[in-house]
Each structure stands twice: as C-alpha cells, then as structure tokens.
Design a protein around this nucleic acid. Structure first.
Length: 893
DNA sequence: GCGGACTGCTTACCT
DNA sequence: ACAGGTAAGCAGTCCGCG
C-alpha cells in the first residue's frame, strides 16, 4: 500500500467515547464504525486460487469487465498504453458465480435438495456476512454455480428453487466478479504471470501532508476509505486512441430512416481518429453528381462502387480501435449497419464486427472487439446536463452540444440531404465525425477524463457509465462498498420492511414526502442584498447527521433519543452509516481540498485542469446522492432517509431565519438552502457564518451580493443586479424557453434598462425607457409586423401524441394539425412551434400560420403578464396595474 | 347555453 | 426513471342562472 506511511499516524485514532448528547443541533459523534473483526469476514468471500493461466504480462487501464459464456470465465478489457490496443484478460482465479442463502448447508440439503442436483450446482460454503439493518453478523451459505444462468435468469435457476431464502442473486455476474476482486474500472492495472494487480499512484509528500492535515481527527474507517479514493484521483489517465464515425443514409423527403428495417442504402460513412485519421467513404450512385470539390474539405475522399464493399472497408478501418465513438449510434448507426448488412447485403453474422443484444426496449448494437461510446447517451444524462454543465446546452443534438463546447457553428444545408452532390455529402458527413471526436478531445480531453473519473468512482465500465443514470451509478458504488466490507447487500423489500414508509406529507399531491421550504418574498426593490447559502446542504446533512439506510431508525434503544426534527425518526450514534461515510468523504474531498486546489495560482494549467475535472466529477456524484434515496429506481432507497434529509434542511433554514431575527437582519427571501439578507453589516454576516458552523455544523457561505434585488410576491421569481452590473434572473416568464422570441427580446431590452439603475432615483428614467419600448412593441404587434417565427411559442412534446388522453394542451393540438394536415411525423421530445390564433382551435403550427391569423389580444395579454412580473416589483403603483384587467398595460403606458 | 369558480394537467423553472 | 416546490396557462367540469 503506497499510502500506508502517509496514514500511519492517522490510523491510531483516539478512542473517543460516545457523547451523551441530546441536543439535536450538536454534531453526532459516532464510535469507530467497523471493527477489524468485521473486516476479516471479507477474506472468506474473496478467495484467490492459484493462477491457472500463463505468461502474459502488460499494463493498462481497465475499461470493461464482462463474462464470456463460451469460456465460462469473467474477462477484463484493458487499454494498453504502450501498444494502444485493447487487451483481454481472462480470469485466472477460478472465480465462480454464486448466491447467498440465509439457510444452513444442512437446511438446503434437506429442504431444498433440488439445489444439489441442479445441473449447474458446483458447491456450498458456510460464510459470515454482516447485516447492517439488524446490526449483527449473520451466518450464510454461499451456493456456488458453474455458470451465471444457473444462479438466475432461467425458470429453474437455483434462486428460484430457494424462493425467499436467496440473497444477492440478482447481481449480474461480471459485477459480482468486479466487486469481489475489488476491481476499479478506469484504474491502471498490471498483468504479470497471469495475475491482475493494481498499480498504485505516486502521491507527492506535499500533497500527502496537506491532505492528512485537512482530515485530522477523522475516524479510522473514514481515513482508510479516503486512502482508497485518493488513488482514483491521483492515478494518471492515458490518452486513449479512438475513432469517431458517422453514417448517412439515403432518405426520400419526409421519411425518417428506419434502423430496424434498414431499407435504404447507406450512402456515406466518415471517420475521424485521434491518430489523425480523416476519411470518408462515399457510395457511388449513378443518379448523383460528384460535384465540385469543397475547398474546406481536408480529409481523404474515397468513392466505393457498392454498399457491400463500403461496409467491408468500414469494418477494416474500425478494426483495432479500442474505442469507437458515435453520436446516437445506439439508436441508429450501429443498428442500421447491422440490419443493412444482414437483411439486405447478404452478410453472415460472423462477417460483421457487431452483435445485437435485446434490451427491454429494443435491440442494441455492440462492437465485438471495441468499446462503443455513444456520446448522445452521455450528454443526455440529466446529472451530466444539470450538475456538470449547468444546463448550458438546451437540447441534445450534435449541433447544439458542439456549438456549446466547441464554438463550431452548424453547417446550414441549402438543400435536402438527398440532393447533395457526393462532395458535399462527404464534407457534411466528415464534419459530424470530426466534431463528435472533438467533443472528447477539446480542453486536453476534458470530457474523456471526466468519464474515466466517473468510471472510477462508480466502478462502472465506460459502456455502462455512459448509458446508465445516477441511480445505477450510486447503486454500483454502494454495492461495491458493501462487498468490500462483507456487508450483506439488502434487497429493497428488506429495507422497506425494517425501515417503513415516509411519515411526512408533501405539499404537492402525489409526492412521497415533504421537501424544502421557500421563504415568502418581501415584494419591492431592495438595495445591498447579500445571499448566504449552505455549501451543498443535503450532502452535508447526510454526513453530519450520519444518515444512511441502516442508521436512520436503527435498532439500538439508546439511539432513539437522537431525534430528527419534525419527524418520528431517530439516528444512530453507535456506527458510522455507510452512505454518510462515502458521501461525506466525497463532499469533504471536493470542498476542503480539490475545489481549493483548482483555484491555486501556483500550479500549472494542466494541473489546474485536472483539479477542475476532479471537482466536477465529485460534484455530479454528490449532487445526485440525496435524490436517489427518495427514488424507487435506486435499490437502496429509503424514504425515512430522504425525508430526514429534507426535514433537517427545513430545520436549518428556519433556525437561520430565527437567528437573523435575533441579530436584527431582515430576511427578504430564501429557498431551500439560502437566505437573502437586506443590507446586513459585515459583522452580522460573520456572526451568522460562525453561528452556523457551531450550531448546525454546516458551512454557510456568501453566495452573491446584489446592488439591488427586485422581488414580487412570487416565489422562485426574481431579478437581481450584481455590483458589477450583471443581471441574475430567476424564474421570470420572459426568460422561459417556450416564450415567443419577440417577447423574450422585449423582456431582455427591459432588463438592459434595469442594468443601468444604480440608485432609487435612476428608476424614473428606466421606467420611461421601458414604457417606450413596450409601446413600440404593441404598435408593431397591432400592425402585424412580427413574423410568424417571432410570434411562435415553442413547447416540448413530452410524450407521444396518442398518450395525451386527460387533456389536449395547445402544443399538442398544433402537433395534431401537423400530422393530419401536413403528414409530418412528430415524436416525444420534439419541440412544437405554434402561434395563438383568433379562430378555429385557437392555435396553429407555424408551418400553417400567417401573421394575419394571430390573435393580437392574446399576445398583448402575454406581453402584459410577462412585464408585470418585473413591473410590480420595481414600484409601478398597484392601481396602474390593477385597473380594468384588460387595460393593465394601457394604464401603464 | 354561457360564464365563473374550481380542479387537474402540462410545461418550465428553482434549489 | 435522482428529489420536492412553485408559477403559469389552459382544458375540462360543475353549478347557477328563470
């Protein structure tokens, strides 16, 4: 262990007595969580047999773990930096699939004799596990099978025979293998004499001492886990050789290619590789001109006589690349190539380097000898969109994502793809491959490095991590941590049975428990507003209050006095919760170390980049951690944990409000984890920050400072102007994506006027300017001078058209017209553009609308309500606005 | 048969 | 398939109105 020395001192913690502490605002002290004897159980689970495989020797980072049915062995795919190839290593330990039973060997033999006579049965072993829910060791029988399907997946699998005496049987074998051998995907390993060994990173003395200083006083279990996670962040990440590709398919106008049937020809395939490859294969078509060469085109251009050759050449090019990247290849390119080859071009399945697997929805394509990275899937992940990139891309098309990250603008096609010359088609197609590749290479491989870090933290393969949501990420992370400690992995029913349901009632009908508090805003203009917020509130609560599925409502009578405010729940002070430990650790690493390091001015740009990516990866995991506890999709979900978290959050913000009142600071607004303070003094701010640290054990920071803030009576709605003149707009209608552009523009022009305001007296001028702007807008509207595009609302269709049965909203009506009148196919996820009209259905899709169709009255109303949100806050007298309803605006102007 | 009060649905946003 | 809370607009329903 490379870090043994580093933590030598820390590993001998003072034995602290559990404090008899009833004050709920005090940090919950816990006894050292996992005694050494608990850990020893582990060695019985992980047994390394003698290596049976011979002399291969190399180094690489692990990208995938799988199971090979033909060899009946687990395998690992490593990227070998030296050869730039993927290498497969087959298990040499003789590890076999198994499940656990709470029955003894004898009980199984006598009561479930079918297990012993099962074809796939290998052997049984008595082992010990630790049951966190009951807080005690339990004797279990490990039932080992010769192959995964004998454990589960068939009608007569062993788990079916054992009925409800079977545990951990639902874990896919390759994952079970990775957990047992504590394999961390994304980390460097060495294969020597057939054995697989981790390569531990070198961590400099400076860093070691910085970190050990920061984490002084933490418990042994915490430090051991810290040691493990630090390796994830300090192990080097190689630049992996990879290629992006994209296909174009002939499609008659208004027809979307069907990847299932693959009826039309593949006309073009392009490639862009990290080795500099830029190549386009174009199908020769008698009816299509070659056209003039495109000056910008700098790839290799090759015309291929027939489709069969085109695919063969494609397979030759792709072969040998460790990673093949696509944008939406899962849903389209791979499927299309496979089906085209098999159904129309007479390929045998073994002549294609692809295979299909059946997922619940449809068939998914895989490369046989490479890893397929579908960037669409990754960028589509909500945690990635929201936490990592703060919603900076609004939809997940290649063009939008590329525009956001690469500044590359879309090639606007002047004619349909079906009418492009071969040269034009090649240019267009290659560009897509190039930007797809570039999405993984820009900023020194930022995205690729982020992915590798996420793989290490979640222990998921590249293919899994990029395709699964955060509930799977955290599931895998926690399952691995359970196995590493020989904790029994509880199934959802077991947790529910022991812990029960939620006890609070949500504000929103249909939700499972109560969430956060939003403080009622004080309407008006407020100068010098300071916003304080709790640094990652929920993760902090989870750590400080030791929240985990086993610690909330634990089975110790002594713990029942540690009440969680506003709930009937209590929390354990005897053991560290596994989730509190891991989430707390990741949070601390981010806040106490990496975030500061990223700001360090003395380090190189490359280091800074790396620290930033680490901070990002941690943020994604931490932000998602609370949410999964409340979601049935997460197998360790536990509603008492989720509602305890929000209850403590409510407690924290209300206590803060009280404290503010006590010291004479006015709280004019607040949401979940923030308080907006009206011109507080430096001393008052400092007092609050110190108070929070001492009383709540949660860091309270200055988040932002406004020159002034405009509040209406609406929650989650405000406009603030920072000291530097930049504006911060939240929730206002004018900002919303679905609003017609002419309203958005008018709104931002108003905002520009408000930016200029420095003091109360400046408002008069701003008001005048705004009035003029508004007048102009109305005139233009009345004269029908806005184009249909400027007037269009753009609403997302969140489900397929036929799924709207309870009511038919306007955008759905517009979409229906698109289908019936224009025979245009619309799908879930499409954005429908429509205008509001005088007659008919009251709505028309822009494809069918003329400016004269629109209802001026409705647009005036819309403009009015959009402006009203800001105007009533900046002191337009209430009478002016609340005269006769339809004349609100006239009164103002 | 029409409009107001109401509830529920849908979308977009905030934390 | 990570959570709950809020705003806004419209759809649909019920009720009262001679």
């Amino acid at each position: 262990m490379a870090l043994d020395k580093f933590f030598k001192k820390a590993k001998e913690p003072d034995k602290q007595e559990v404090q008899e502490e009833t004050n709920i605002t005090k940090k919950i002290e816990v006894e050292q969580a996992f005694a050494q004897k608990d850990r020893e159980v582990l060695t019985e689970v992980i047994e390394n047999k003698e290596p049976i495989a011979p002399d291969i020797s190399f180094e690489g980072i692990i990208l995938d773990v799988g199971y090979d049915g033909t060899q009946a062995k687990a395998y690992i795919l490593l990227y070998n930096k030296a050869t730039k190839q993927l290498q497969k290593w087959y298990d040499t330990t003789g590890h076999l699939p198994y499940l656990l039973s709470d029955l003894s060997e004898t009980e199984i033999k006598t009561q479930y004799s079918g297990v012993m006579t099962h074809n796939g049965f290998a052997e049984m072993k008595s082992i010990k596990k630790f049951d966190l829910l009951r807080d005690k060791p339990i004797a279990m029988t490990k039932v080992i099978a010769k192959d995964p399907l004998s454990i589960g997946g068939r009608q007569n699998s062993i788990r079916n025979l054992l009925e409800n005496h079977s545990w951990e049987d639902y874990i896919r074998y390759h994952k079970c293998y990775a957990y047992d051998n504590q394999i961390v995907i994304g980390m460097p390993y060495q294969v020597t004499n057939g054995r697989l060994n981790p390569i531990h990173p070198e961590i400099s003395e400076v860093i070691k001492s910085q970190i050990s200083h920061l984490f002084e006083g933490e418990k042994e279990e915490y430090l051991l886990t810290l040691e493990q996670y630090l390796e994830y962040f300090f192990s080097p990440i190689p630049d992996i050789r990879r290629v992006a590709f994209d296909i174009e398919v002939f499609s008659p106008p208004n027809k979307i290619p069907d990847a299932e049937k693959a009826e039309e020809r593949i006309t073009c395939i392009s490639f862009a590789g990290t080795d500099g490859l830029k190549k386009v294969l174009v199908l020769k078509r008698e009816d299509v001109e070659l056209g003039a060469q495109i000056p910008d085109f700098d790839g290799e251009f090759k015309i291929i006589a027939n489709e069969r050759e085109l695919l063969l050449e494609t397979f030759r090019i792709l072969e040998g690349y460790p990673i093949i990247i696509s944008f939406n290849g899962d849903n389209f390119d791979l499927k299309y190539i496979y089906n085209r080859a098999v159904k129309h071009l007479g390929f045998q399945k073994d002549q294609i380097p692809l295979y299909m697997t059946i997922s619940p929805q449809s068939e998914v394509g895989h490369f046989k000898n490479s890893i397929h990275l579908d960037l669409y899937k990754f960028f589509h992940n909500r945690a990635i969109m929201v936490s990592a990139f703060r919603n900076i891309y609004k939809d997940v098309s290649l063009d939008t994502v590329a525009q956001t990250f690469l500044d590359s603008s879309k090639i606007i096609l002047e004619k349909p793809i079906s009418e492009l010359t071969l040269n034009e088609l090649a240019y267009y197609c290659l560009r897509d491959s190039e930007i797809t590749l570039k999405l993984t290479t820009f900023n020194e491989n930022l995205i690729m490095d982020l992915m590798i870090l996420l793989m290490r933290i979640t222990r998921l393969s590249l293919e899994d991590m990029t395709r699964q949501g955060v509930s799977t990420w955290l599931q895998n992370l926690f399952y691995a941590e359970h196995r590493a400690r020989a904790f029994l992995i509880p199934n959802p029913d077991y947790i529910r049975k022991v812990k029960g349901q939620a006890s609070t009632t949500a504000m929103i009908k249909g939700k499972k428990y109560k969430g956060a508090i939003v403080v009622k805003p004080q309407p008006g203009i407020h100068f010098n507003v300071v916003v304080l917020d709790f640094a990652s509130l929920y993760p902090s609560i989870i750590k400080t209050w030791n929240l985990s599925y086993e610690t909330v409502n634990c089975n110790h009578a002594e713990c029942q006095k540690n009440r969680i405010p506003e709930t009937p729940h209590w929390v354990c002070t005897k053991k560290v919760g596994i989730m509190a430990l891991i989430i707390g650790l990741l949070r601390d690493l981010r806040v106490k170390y990496f975030k500061n390091m990223a700001k360090d001015k003395t380090i190189s740009n490359a280091e800074k980049n790396m620290y930033n990516i680490i901070t990002q990866s941690l943020k994604i995991i931490i932000n998602a951690s609370y949410g999964v506890f409340g979601s049935e999709a997460f197998p360790l979900f536990c509603l008492p944990v989720a509602e305890a978290t929000t209850a403590i959050g409510r407690y924290a913000i209300t206590q803060t409000q009280k404290k503010c009142e006590e010291i004479g600071v006015e709280v004019i607004y607040g949401d979940t984890d923030s308080v907006f303070l009206k011109s507080p003094t430096q001393e008052q701010i400092q007092e609050l920050i110190d108070w929070s640290e001492n009383e709540l054990q949660i860091e309270l920071d200055i988040d932002k400072v406004y020159r002034y803030l405009a509040l209406s009576e609406r929650k989650k709605n405000y406009l603030g102007v920072y000291k530097d003149g930049n504006v911060d707009i939240k929730g206002l209608t004018g900002k919303k994506r679905h609003m017609p552009p002419f309203i958005q523009n008018a709104f931002y022009e108003m905002v520009d006027e408000l930016k200029k305001v420095n003091a109360l007296e400046d408002f008069e001028d701003a008001k005048r300017q705004i009035r003029n702007k508004l007048k102009g807008c109305i005139k233009k509207l009345e004269k029908n001078l806005y184009s249909v595009d400027e007037l269009a609302f753009q609403m997302t269709l969140s489900k397929d058209l036929d799924k709207y049965v309870k009511s038919i909203p306007q955008h759905v009506r517009a979409a229906q017209l698109l289908e019936t009148k224009l025979h245009k196919k619309v799908d879930s996820g499409d954005i429908i553009q429509f205008v509001k009209t005088k007659g008919g259905d009251g709505v028309l899709p822009i494809e069918l609308a003329k400016p004269s169709d629109v209802s001026i009255k409705k647009y005036k109303q819309q403009l009015e309500s959009t402006f009203e949100q800001v105007l009533d806050a900046i002191g337009i007298p209430i009478e002016e606005l609340y005269g006769v309803k339809t004349r609100k605006l006239d009164a103002f102007i």
